[in-house]
Simulated scan of single mutants.
Amino acid sequence: MTVLSLEDLAASTPPGTPWLGLDLGEKTIGVAVSDTTRMIASPLSLVRKTKFTDDAHAVLKLMDGRKASGLVIGLPLNMDGSEGPRAQSCRAFARNLQRI
C-alpha cells in the first residue's frame, strides 16, 4: 500500500470500485465506504482501537469485504492550517499501514 494524493489515488485505482474513508480518533476509527462512483460516502463501521496491528487488520478486512481499492484518511489540521499532534498521528498510521 502506498500513500498518494487523492488525484494519484483516483488514477491508480480501478474505476467502479469503492474507497474506504477513515476518521482516526484516539479511541476509535470511524470507517465509511463510498459508492462505486466515489461521490457519496456512508458510515460503515466503528473500530475500537487496541493494538495497531489488530486495528490495521480490522480495517483491511473491511476493505476486502467491500472490495475497496483505496483508503482515504482524514488529516485533522489546526485552524491556521498547521499540523498538530493528531495530524502527525494520522500520518504515522498511514506510514505503518504501508508496512502491512
Rank of each mutant, 00 (worst) to 15 (best):
T13C: 12
L75N: 06
V47T: 12
A41Q: 00
L44N: 12
P43M: 13
T17A: 03
M63E: 10
L24M: 12
A10Q: 15
R48E: 06
L71N: 02
A41N: 06
K51V: 08
T36M: 07
V33T: 09
S34Q: 04
L24F: 01
I40H: 10
L46I: 13
T37M: 03
A68S: 09
A41I: 03
L60S: 08
K61M: 07
D54W: 10
S45L: 00
A10N: 15
A32D: 10
L71E: 04
G25H: 01
S42M: 06
V31C: 04
L6P: 07
D55A: 07
D8S: 13
R48H: 05
L60H: 12
K67D: 03
T36C: 04
D55F: 06
W19S: 06
R38I: 00
W19G: 09
P15Y: 11
L62E: 06
D23R: 15
V59I: 10
D54E: 15
I29W: 08
A11D: 08
D64L: 04
M39E: 08
T53H: 15
A41K: 05
A58D: 06
S42V: 05
L6A: 10
L44Y: 00
D23E: 03
V47R: 01
E7M: 13
R66E: 05
S45C: 06
V31Q: 06
K67P: 00
L24Y: 03
G16A: 04
R38K: 14
A58H: 11
H57Y: 13
A58W: 00
D8A: 14
I40F: 12
R38E: 13
V59K: 14
T28R: 01
T50R: 04
D35A: 08
H57A: 15
D55T: 03
L75S: 06
K61T: 04
D64A: 02
E26H: 15
T28I: 04
E26N: 15
P43W: 11
V47N: 05
S69R: 13
R38M: 02
G30H: 03
A58P: 00
L6H: 05
I73G: 09
E26F: 11
P18D: 13
V47W: 06
I40A: 05
K67Q: 03
A56H: 07
L60Q: 14
L46N: 12
D55N: 12
S42Q: 12
W19K: 09
S42H: 14
